[in-house]
Design a protein around this nucleic acid. Structure first.
Lengths: 236, 236
DNA sequence: TGCGCTTTTTGACAAATATCAAAAAACTGC
DNA sequence: GCAGTTTTTTGATATTTGTCAAAAAGCGCA
């Protein structure tokens, strides 16, 4: 997808995404978006924000793909998530009015920027909006705890299987194929997210391939045996 | 501390804790607490709530100590956190109106229960309250991401050191000794939280003890070399 | 198209952590 | 204070994952 195409993709989406599943009408959403949100392209490799930046806005990903990562003093980094269209960036910055992670586009992307002070004002006026937003924040907590489970009690093959199943599920929720994945991140990014070294990720992908569970060609992955993958996640 | 003592400890604390650092006056807090929150003792070993319970209230820990854990289908569990006086339980349940973890008291404890529907109404009326609460939720996200960093990129000794430093810091913020820790959880709980086996936790404690960094007598731990511990966390 | 850089794969080996087992210590209820 | 249970410690060994290295594949750009 090239950049000029992306510019026409974005719709009145940011408020909707911040508060989905919404109780607002389409007209309300559209109205709000027009007044509050600002579409913004981010090129592959660029940072949307960096650790330490002061916090002004949340961002809804309209198109593209991001990763977020935190830095340890000694230079090690931990990828904390991958965000695709319809997902929100910046929730962790509300806490201290300062971004505490880096958000980097892994492909040419578009975000809708929502100034947080105006969003908060609006929440005061619209009960429903605020309620949805509380849920959005809580959902992120639940997601993070799922990652803790993954990192704290799964073995490497289960982690990778869970990661692939999760990606496939999110793609299919966005009406993209759930068996044909194009990874936007490196093996190192995946490894960081899963608490594994890149070589381990590579070996596991090769093994899943050899076992007929996946077809792996670089970053193009086809899931051949979804049930088998799921079995690894649930029981193995 | 026995139970009858605990009953006299709780003050008008729940709203304050939900929204600290607060912009409300003491009188406001007291007023709100009297109308909205309900003090409740929880005996050691009892569950405050369980996975699947429907969500009605948040809880501020007034006194005592809790752990939260999530269950994997196959019976494995992952401890997601330990909560002490002044900390909040239940934020993850807002997402789906249902608790997604178990909260168990690790000693006789007291919580302040805050019915969430009434709290939300109040947030609509008091801008400041809602703003504080957004931050509280975001702070939990940041905390969880810190655990991801710990689980995803630290080695066992760094994890344990980070855990001890974190506990000590939280105790001292509550004006308790930061060098004299009485662990309320088992080695297995610690291991689950840190993504390690209980034997590994035990061995590491013994090693820190032998190296003169800690004095370990069962669950009584004295930190003899805080700087050494910190060095492990930051750079090792 | 081809050159240089980054990413990925694979192998051999090393290190970290888990597993299994058994004894010691601590706690619980009476 | 004692008997039974749970928790903790420690040792010997196994397994998993990481480290180092080198070649292959893929990608960006002149």
């Amino acid at each position: 997808m090239d950049f000029s195409e992306l510019k026409s993709v974005c719709c009145g989406c940011s408020i909707r995404e911040l508060c989905l599943p919404a109780g607002l009408t389409d007209q309300e959403v559209l109205l709000l978006d027009q007044h509050m949100s600002h579409r913004q392209p981010v090129k592959k490799g660029e940072s949307l924000y960096r650790t330490g930046d002061s916090f002004r806005s949340l961002y809804a990903v309209s198109a593209g793909f991001f990763k977020t990562s935190i830095l340890h003093e000694d230079g090690r980094t931990q990828v904390t998530g991958f965000q695709m269209a319809g997902e929100i960036l910046g929730l962790d910055a509300i806490s201290a009015d300062r971004h505490v992670c880096d958000a980097v586009a892994l492909e040419d992307s578009v975000v809708c920027e929502v100034p947080f002070d105006r969003f908060e004002e609006l929440g005061q006026l619209m009960t429903n909006l605020q309620r949805r937003f509380n849920r959005t924040l809580s959902r992120e907590i639940v997601r993070d705890q799922g990652v803790m489970l993954l990192l704290g009690s799964m073995r490497s093959e289960e982690r990778l299987a869970a990661f692939l199943v999760n990606l496939a599920t999110r793609f299919s929720a966005r009406k993209q194929s759930s068996s044909e994945l194009v990874l936007r991140m490196t093996r190192e990014d995946i490894g960081s997210y899963l608490g594994l070294k890149l070589e381990t990720v590579s070996r596991l992908l090769s093994r899943f391939h050899d076992e007929g569970m996946l077809s792996v060609r670089g970053r193009n992955i086809r899931i051949l045996d979804p049930a088998g993958l799921n079995r690894l996640v649930v029981s193995a």
